[in-house]
């Protein structure tokens, strides 16, 4: 046995030293390489998984958003159509009303103008009557001054004034 150990150069102290060396190496590599590397790989894996989940969520949200957007757009479209219809109807109503009012106003103006015209004509006729009566009276006066007495003249004037309108009409 000792020959065998000697032939291979096996020595307990060297063996022990190598065992210690190797053990130290395990701890050093474990502390400074394996643990941190595996940890960072795990962390990265977790982050990637999380990101994938987030992407999925975002995609889901986007799909929902698209659906919502379509719904809103359709609704807005419908509302706009409705509004337009209503506006058109209202405008039509307003137009007819305005037209009606304008017609009414025009007819009123026409009536008033006619009235005024009538009034003016009546006034004019009256004035002419007055002026004519006065002129007749004056001319008659001038003629009669020579033949009538003051009293006759006055009587005549009164009678004339009284009967003139019936005469003229």
């Amino acid at each position: 046995m000792t020959d065998l150990l000697h032939a291979f150069g096996i020595q307990w102290s060297v063996l022990l030293a190598q065992i210690i060396n190797f053990t130290i190496l395990i701890f050093i590599l474990s502390r400074f390489v394996y643990k941190p590397v595996l940890k960072i790989i795990d962390e990265r894996r977790a982050v990637i998984a999380e990101s994938m989940e987030k992407v999925k969520e975002i995609n889901r949200g986007k799909e929902q958003l698209d659906i919502d957007r379509a719904v809103i757009l359709r609704k807005a479209d419908e509302e706009a159509g409705e509004l337009l219809e209503r506006a058109k109807a209202e405008a039509e109503a307003v137009r007819t009303e305005i037209e009606k009012a304008a017609k009414l106003q025009a007819s009123q103006i026409l009536v008033k103008a006619k009235e005024q015209l009538e009034n003016e004509r009546a006034t004019m006729v009256r004035e002419i009557q007055n002026k004519l009566a006065h002129a007749i009276v004056l001319s008659a006066e001038k003629i009669l001054r020579r033949e009538f007495s003051k009293d006759d003249q006055e009587n005549f004037e009164d009678e004339l004034k009284k009967n003139l309108p019936s005469l003229l009409s």
Partner: peptide
């Protein structure tokens, strides 16, 4: 190339 080394790892 030394039995001491390989033996120590084998023992561990």
């Amino acid at each position: 190339a030394d039995v001491n080394m390989t033996l120590s790892i084998a023992i561990i």
